[in-house]
Each structure stands twice: as structure tokens, then as C-alpha cells.
């Protein structure tokens, strides 16, 4: 399997002279095509910083990043924008839906930006809405639907353009447990059936247990990783909890 994302010696330093804080220190990681990778770590460990850098929203201080074979850490702003649009999908904790658009319009946004024909757009929306189970709410506005539905809308928007890589930043953070489970099931189905490559940052061990591999970060450096392999989800969940307790610090808000 080819590597979808490669990060080498990634370093991120915040602040100016005299008052510097190293958020990420020499991180190496690789995500293969079709993987569903979780990133966990205590508060302040740098997991969101890592996601922002890998997803081109932020730039690293040092190191190099390759996504789908092309180097992205030295691209210009407008090039990055088109790269994000064409290659990446995003799911954020606070949904980031546009409240001026209907659910359907929110979903088609990436396709519209890519100037896909209206006919093709309609076909793909139907297809995805069916898969994610949001067909009935397509004509509604974001403020008219529940948090779970909003997040599934965001997930639909993230995958509709067929991105190489989907980034999810605490996607279940604002959801109740039932909606969270439904969303995670949708994501893992996408991963299994469509071979979507997903990287998800979470501090929720239950959410992480849906991944095929979980990376643990502590104080800006890689701590360990846990591969699901053939273990059942329940056992995997237990293993994740064990690692987290070994990690310690700031993880008392586990579940």
C-alpha cells in the first residue's frame, strides 16, 4: 500500500526570542492509503497543532510533509487553498457549516468550487446522503437540525469530492453518545467500504477504538502507537485506556 501522508522531522515552535514554546518536536509519521488513524494525547500535548500542520492550515517551523506524493510545507497560500480543496476533507468539532446554506448546499460546496457539472453534483449528493442517512434533511438549514445531523453533514461535505485524506478534529466532541456512535460508524464504514483514508484527533478513547491504528503524543513528541489488528473493538478500547493511564496527566476527562 502506498503512503498517503508522510511527515519527517516536523517541528513547531511558538513565540519569539526569549519566550519560545516547542509544541512539536521532531515528529515522524506515515499514514497508508485506506488507514483510519487516531491521534490521542493529553491536553497541551500538541495533537491539534499536529493536525493543523498536517492539514496545511498551519505551517511547520521545520521538517517536511508529503501528501499523496506531493510536498506541501513550502507551497504558497493560494496553492495551499487549491490543494486543500482538491485533496483534503475536513470535519471539525464545531461543524463549520455555513448557516446561509441549506444542508444540501453545504455538502455540494466543494464540488461547486471545483466546478463540477450540476448534473454530476446532484447524482453524488443523492448517493452520499443515502449512505450517511441524511436524505430527509437536505432542504433544511443547519439551525433546523440536530448536532449529530450537522456533524454528518460536515462528514458528507468532507468526502463528497473524493479527497485523498480526511482530517477530523474532535468530531464527536460536541455530540451526545448516540449521535457520536452513529457518526463513528459512518466514518468506519467509509473507511472499510470506500477505502477512505482518515486521520482523527480525539481525546475520547471510545471514539479512538473505531480506528485501525492509534498514535499517542505526549509533550509534542511521539509516545507510542497501538494497532488494532484482529482484536475486537472492546478489547482495543481497553488497551487504549491502558496506554492512556500510562501516559497520565490531564486525561481525567477520558470518557
Amino acid at each position: 500500500m502506498k503512503a498517503m501522508l508522510q511527515a519527517q522531522h516536523v517541528k513547531k515552535v511558538f513565540g519569539q526570542k526569549g519566550n519560545v514554546f516547542t509544541a512539536l518536536d521532531d515528529i515522524d509519521l506515515e499514514i497508508k492509503e485506506g488507514e483510519f488513524v487516531g491521534v490521542m494525547g493529553p491536553s497541551g500535548s500538541g495533537k491539534t497543532t499536529l493536525l493543523n500542520i498536517l492539514s496545511t492550515i498551519d505551517q511547520p517551523t521545520a521538517g517536511s510533509i508529503f501528501i499523496d506524493g506531493s510536498r506541501i510545507d513550502n507551497l504558497k497560500e493560494d496553492q495551499l487553498s487549491s490543494f486543500r480543496r482538491n485533496k483534503l476533507g475536513f470535519i471539525f468539532q464545531d461543524y463549520n457549516l455555513l448557516d446561509t446554506l441549506t444542508i444540501e448546499e453545504n455538502i455540494v460546496l466543494p464540488l461547486a468550487l471545483a466546478k463540477v457539472s450540476a448534473k454530476e453534483i446532484d447524482r453524488r449528493v443523492k448517493n452520499i446522503a443515502h449512505k450517511i442517512g441524511i436524505e430527509e434533511i437536505l432542504a433544511k438549514f443547519p439551525y433546523q437540525v440536530s448536532g449529530g445531523q450537522k456533524q454528518r453533514t460536515a462528514a458528507s461535505r468532507a468526502i463528497i469530492a473524493g479527497p485523498s485524506l480526511i482530517f477530523a478534529d474532535e468530531p464527536t466532541g460536541a455530540l451526545d453518545s448516540k449521535s457520536a456512535t452513529a457518526l463513528l460508524q459512518s466514518l468506519s464504514q467509509l473507511n472499510e467500504r470506500e477505502h477512505a483514508t482518515i486521520m482523527m484527533v480525539t481525546h475520547d478513547a471510545f471514539a479512538a477504538s473505531f480506528c485501525s491504528r492509534v498514535l499517542f503524543i505526549k509533550d509534542g513528541a511521539m509516545f507510542t502507537e497501538l494497532v488494532k489488528g484482529q482484536t475486537s473493538r472492546k478489547d482495543y478500547f481497553q488497551k487504549i485506556l491502558d496506554v492512556l493511564s500510562a501516559l497520565g496527566g490531564g486525561m481525567d476527562d477520558l470518557i
Binding site: T100, L101, L109, A112, K115, A118, K119
Partner: peptide, 19 residues
């Protein structure tokens, strides 16, 4: 007019205006 509406950034501008 879907084909016009779904063309690039039109979708944002139009909905924003309507809003």
C-alpha cells in the same frame, strides 16, 4: 438555475445575499 448556481463561488455569494 442549478448549473449557474452550482458554479464555483456563486453559491456562496447568492446565498449570502439572500440571507
Amino acid at each position: 438555475n442549478r448549473s449557474q448556481y452550482y458554479k464555483g463561488i456563486n453559491i456562496i455569494g447568492t446565498s449570502q445575499l439572500l440571507y
